[in-house]
Design a binder for these strands. Structure first.
Lengths: 251, 251
DNA sequence: CGTTATCTTGACTGAAATCAATCCCGGTGG
DNA sequence: CCACCGGGATTGATTTCAGTCAAGATAACG
């Protein structure tokens, strides 16, 4: 377990830190054997590393166990757009597994730990467990919901509204998985990441965040962001927040 | 069959104009009974009508048979962002069926005909046909791919690049289903729709399209757009085009 | 202790929004 | 047949927002 990076020995799913999270319930009572039969290893990567690269065909599908990652796409001249973030419990690389080739890249934002599954487990799961298949599809739809809101944001919200929306979203998602202790986003998000998510230049992003700071809504210090007033963020952004409702229809 | 609008009698799926399209193959050899057992009716709506509204819980899932529709979300003050378009053969309302409540609206761009299924057919299909379940999930992933590119576009491409990308995308998708005869987009797309898709004002959209017209790449006339030079559109946008590759891995 | 990544700030430029008219054309009703 | 109307497309003038350029400040890091 000393290796900082690379595939390490397979540990028991019963020790999984996510074991008791409601997220994964459907995978635990798969018809017959549990999810662990599909697990082929673990992967630990340091912050800033690439997990999956656009254009490549990965034989693997991942679950993010620890840390935060982000999906992004780039243009040939270097411009980059961050599409979405992944938090512990999220599936990583599903699109690539389904479509055969990655259409975007995924990088580790913080140090991350991933659980590695063979791509073929997807087909198996669809064959053997309707509940698991449904769960996967449901998650995909959920993901698309966030993407929709991101697109609305980048397309139609002002810089300040956009920034407020993004921070509110990250805050809510981080909080759900314990990554926002004392309301501080507990991962190394830089203003460049924010800029590339909002579709703004880094300079303008900085100025926009400054306005939010002046309003005492957030605080940026020591390379990190603390949310001082979550409600004000929602107010400013005009976003409803993650639907607390939506208890998934059971299959 | 005279009614211009509303649910009409159920016709046989064997008469479906989409029957022979490769799109639907997986649904045709569902384990046992075909897709038609789930069909509960048909819906015809005129251009500009709302199909599904944000916030509502629809008991139905649709397949678009004829015409073009678009998904969109709005802010409280009226700003609107078009997220994606639906062409014949596409599933409409899947997100709502999965998540219980629509997170976006869907409107008819042209006159449309939709095939109506009961929402519960989803659960049934997952139970009874892994191939159909996989197909649905695969389509969701494909959709998300387009959404990703749209987000990259709105976030990082210049106005002209964006417009070129959008028109190239619509052209390619329309062509696939025969809606681009003589390279003319055969549906009533207005510059306002384009503006709301690109995240630009309508005035600036007009000026941007004018530049493309001047370059003889497109032609806007009689309330419609003709693609004069598809390759130039791709060139300008820096977009690769819909992956001609990606023959889906069969379940 | 220098090096590098990140954050900040100021000055200037440029892209896109906004405001305000027109224009064009198909449809409507007198 | 023709005046009127309304949605859509254009165009010009002006303002505003955001990008770019340039330079420091700050602070983690080897």
């Amino acid at each position: 377990m000393d290796s900082v990076q690379g595939v390490v020995a397979k540990t028991d799913c019963n020790d999984c830190p996510l074991k008791d999270k409601p997220h994964l319930a459907p995978f635990n009572h798969l018809g017959g054997p549990g999810i662990e039969q599909y697990k082929v290893g673990e992967l630990r990567l340091t912050a800033g590393t690439n997990i999956l690269m656009e254009g490549l065909k990965s034989p693997h599908l991942y679950t993010l166990i620890e840390g935060v990652a982000f999906r992004h796409k780039g243009l040939s001249d270097g411009r980059r757009q961050i599409l979405n973030y992944a938090f512990p419990g999220d599936l990583v690389g599903l699109q690539g597994s389904l479509l055969g080739e990655m259409q975007h890249s995924i990088d580790a934002l913080s140090d991350v730990a991933l659980c590695v599954f063979d791509r073929s487990c997807l087909f198996d799961m669809f064959e053997k467990s309707p509940a698991a298949a449904y769960e996967i599809t449901w998650r995909g739809a959920k993901d698309e919901t966030i993407l929709d809101e991101n697109l609305l944001s980048v397309g139609r919200r002002s810089a300040q509204e956009r920034a407020a929306y993004l921070l509110a979203l990250l805050y809510q998602r981080a909080k759900l998985v314990g990554l926002a202790p004392k309301n501080r986003l507990n991962f190394p998000l830089t203003q460049l990441h924010i800029a590339d998510t909002l579709g703004l230049s880094i300079v303008h992003t900085n100025r926009t965040l400054k306005v939010l700071s002046t309003k005492k809504v957030i605080q940026w210090q020591d390379r990190g962001c603390t949310i001082l007033n979550p409600d004000a963020l929602l107010e400013i952004s005009g976003w409803e927040g993650l639907d607390s409702l939506t208890p998934r229809a059971r299959l």
